[in-house]
Amino acid sequence: MSAAQRADARENRERIVEIAREAIASSGELRLNAVAKSAGVGQGTLYRHFPTREDLLAEVYRQEVEDLAALAPELLAASEPVEALSRWFDRIAEYARVKRGVFAALETAVWKGLSEESHGPLGDAITLLLDAGKAEGTIRPDIDARDLFILSGYLTRLDEDEWDSRARHLLDVLLQGVLSR
């Protein structure tokens, strides 16, 4: 396979994952034929990359975790710790919407494995953000990553019709709770 073919295959894969992510985030529904059509690829191309619907759902989730974990150091480089954490919470709201859709579509055994797999990188990202704020004195010293995992887990329980009115508001309440007084 030539370098151009490999690049084309990689671009197809990335486009398929992004289209699937958008479908899950907007409607919670994933129809493979619609994903292939929107990505501009044939069914065969989609199935070469993702032999099953579960494979595609798992990759969407893994990509979300990877993107979210990578965002923490970027935000800290550009903002003060509390602002970085607040902006990271903005992204958590998007992540939770996708996570809810992915987990609703996957069998229990698969989603439990994905959930456990995500705790390492996301725990590291949360710890980075919290430690920066603790060092600055703006984040409470008794807060840790596990606290935020537990408290932000409620986002997956929001109904779609209340998402826009509640998700960010609840994350703002959580942010206020971790600030030192």
Rank of each mutant, 00 (worst) to 15 (best):
Ser2Ala: 15
Ala3Lys: 08
Ala4Met: 10
Ala4Leu: 12
Gln5Gly: 14
Arg6Val: 07
Ala9Glu: 14
Glu14Ile: 03
Ile16Ala: 02
Val17Phe: 04
Glu18Pro: 01
Ala20Asp: 01
Arg21Val: 05
Glu22Asn: 11
Glu22Phe: 06
Ala25Ser: 15
Ala25Leu: 14
Ser26Met: 08
Ser27Gln: 05
Glu29Ala: 10
Glu29Cys: 08
Arg31Thr: 08
Ala34Ser: 15
Ala39Ile: 04
Gly42His: 09
Gln43Tyr: 05
Thr45Ile: 12
Leu46Ala: 04
Leu46Thr: 03
Tyr47Glu: 01
Tyr47Ala: 05
Arg48Val: 06
Glu54Trp: 01
Asp55Val: 01
Asp55Trp: 02
Asp55Pro: 02
Leu57Val: 07
Leu57Phe: 03
Glu59Asp: 05
Tyr61Pro: 06
Glu64His: 05
Leu68Arg: 08
Ala69Pro: 12
Ala69Gln: 13
Ala70Lys: 08
Ala70Gln: 09
Leu71Glu: 04
Pro73Leu: 10
Glu74Trp: 00
Leu75Gln: 05
Leu75Cys: 05
Leu75Trp: 01
Ala78Asn: 07
Ala78Pro: 03
Ser79Asn: 14
Glu80Asp: 15
Pro81Ile: 11
Val82Ile: 14
Ala84Gln: 10
Ala84Gly: 08
Ser86Cys: 02
Arg87Gln: 08
Trp88Phe: 07
Trp88Leu: 01
Asp90Phe: 00
Ile92Glu: 08
Ala93Met: 04
Tyr95Glu: 11
Tyr95Trp: 09
Ala96Leu: 02
Arg97Gln: 06
Val98Trp: 07
Lys99Ile: 00
Arg100Val: 00
Gly101Leu: 06
Val102Arg: 03
Ala104Cys: 01
Ala105Pro: 03
Ala105Met: 01
Leu106Glu: 00
Ala109Val: 02
Trp111Phe: 00
Trp111Gln: 00
Gly113Phe: 00
Ser115Trp: 06
Glu116His: 05
Glu116Pro: 02
Glu117Pro: 05
His119Ala: 11
Ala125Gln: 03
Ala125Asp: 03
Ile126Tyr: 15
Leu128Gln: 14
Leu129Trp: 10
Gly133Trp: 01
Gly133Ile: 02
Ala135Cys: 03
Glu136Asp: 11
Thr138Ile: 00
Asp142Thr: 13
Ile143Leu: 10
Asp144Leu: 07
Asp144Asn: 13
Asp147Cys: 15
Leu148Arg: 13
Ile150His: 12
Ile150Asn: 10
Ser152Gln: 13
Gly153Ile: 12
Tyr154Gly: 08
Leu158Ser: 12
Asp159Pro: 11
Asp161Cys: 13
Asp161Thr: 14
Trp163Glu: 11
Trp163Val: 12
Asp164Gln: 14
Arg166Phe: 12
Leu171Tyr: 03
Leu171Ala: 05
Leu171Pro: 05
Val173Thr: 15
Val173Leu: 15
Val173Phe: 12
Gln176His: 07
Val178Ile: 14
Leu179Ala: 12
Ser180Cys: 04
